[in-house]
């Protein structure tokens, strides 16, 4: 089974509810077959974005194109996009088979073809044994697969996924996340994947679009977003534990109008008072198994470092900090925009 992924273009898309802007001039281009994750905190407009693309709501301004065709005025049915909802939104009065068949049934596909396509999708997602059950008799993971199947069965031009993993428990989420990635590799369909979970976006997406207060902060590959964040907001949003965003003095650098952002893996912590580096004290030690997160206090600020699994020290223990001076990213304290590093004295 394969789906021809369509190109999706959003041009200056704006949506307001009364005087409240939900999206403010979002321009985004998704190539055919690409998986773009739209991330941001709740209320940033990412679900509104999906509703606009699906045709469930009309934009206040801006243009939506699918394969070059303007679809603003088209109904959801004419746009040929499928959507997986956060709550799955399975039809409770229908069996799994009927749920999967529903979009084809509505479209008037001949009965025999509906049967074969439902079987095909059921086989792909391992739903064959569940076809005659009702959604109420399914586990969370199974419901999620049915929701996915109901989208897949249509072979739509664009798939829209609205937080599809957020209702699964943590253990299941990793498995389904991996399945989704393999599925996308196999289908090469166009996916727009909305999530508030930056780890999901990092692992799944070809590119990530970071949305904040209805406007795009940055669009880039996961590596770009992580390594070259355009704003302090993006730097803080991705990465676990979060980036250390501090005044330069905390890192022993000359003061200025920009803050420095240093990833926890770029900060080295050595026990003991003696030696080179910046003096600090241990505040919290969190063993993660494969590594240990160490929070230290220095100059009234807290910094997190990812250390070896064997690191151990009581709170208050003196440590020395070191880092490569090339590593921090610099952000203007007023605008939050990325800046070139200040010239080091001498």
């Amino acid at each position: 089974m394969s789906v021809a992924g369509a190109r999706l273009e959003l041009d200056s898309l704006t949506k307001s509810y009364g005087a409240v802007p939900a999206l403010r001039g979002v321009s985004l281009s998704v190539a055919g077959g690409e998986l773009v994750a739209v991330v941001g905190p709740s209320g940033c407009g990412k679900s509104t974005l999906l509703s606009l693309v699906a045709g469930l709501e009309a934009p206040t301004a801006g243009v939506i194109r699918i394969d070059g065709r303007v679809v603003n005025e088209l109904s959801p049915r004419e746009r040929d996009v499928a959507m997986v909802f956060q709550s799955y939104a399975l039809y409770p009065h229908m069996t799994v088979r009927k749920n999967l068949a529903f979009p084809l049934d509505v479209a008037g596909v001949p009965r025999r073809e509906i049967g074969s396509r439902v079987e095909e999708v059921a086989a792909l997602l391992g739903l064959a044994p569940l076809l005659d059950r009702r959604p109420a008799a399914l586990s969370g993971g199974e419901r999620q697969r049915v929701a996915l199947g109901r989208a897949l069965v249509r072979r739509p031009k664009v798939f829209l996924l609205d937080e599809p993993l957020s209702n699964l428990d943590a253990a299941l989420r990793l498995g389904v996340r991996a399945e989704l990635k393999k599925l996308h590799e196999r289908l090469r369909a166009t996916f727009v994947y909305v999530t508030h979970d930056q780890a999901e976006a990092m692992t799944l997406a070809d590119r990530i679009a970071v949305l904040r207060d209805g406007a795009l902060e940055q669009v880039g590959t996961p590596r770009e977003i992580y390594g070259e964040p355009a704003t302090a907001f993006v730097a803080r949003f991705v990465g676990t534990p979060p980036v250390n965003l501090v005044a330069p003095e905390v890192l022993g650098l000359p003061p200025g109008s920009a803050d420095a952002a240093l990833r926890p893996e770029d900060l080295r912590v050595a026990l003991g008072e003696a030696g080179t580096g910046l003096g600090a004290r241990v505040w919290l030690v969190e063993p993660m198994g494969s590594e240990t997160w160490v929070t230290v206090e220095r100059a009234g600020a807290r910094l997190v470092a990812r250390c070896d699994a064997g690191f151990d020290a009581p709170p208050g223990a003196p440590v020395r900090l070191a880092f490569d001076p090339e590593r921090p990213c610099w952000f203007d304290r007023e605008t939050g925009r990325r800046r070139p590093p200040p010239r080091s004295p001498g």
């Binding site: 699906a54 959801p76 049915r77 039809y91 529903f102």
Partner: peptide, 9 residues
């Protein structure tokens, strides 16, 4: 919303 996206009027 699901029914609408699935093609229903």
């Amino acid at each position: 919303r699901a029914a609408r996206v699935d093609g229903c009027t």
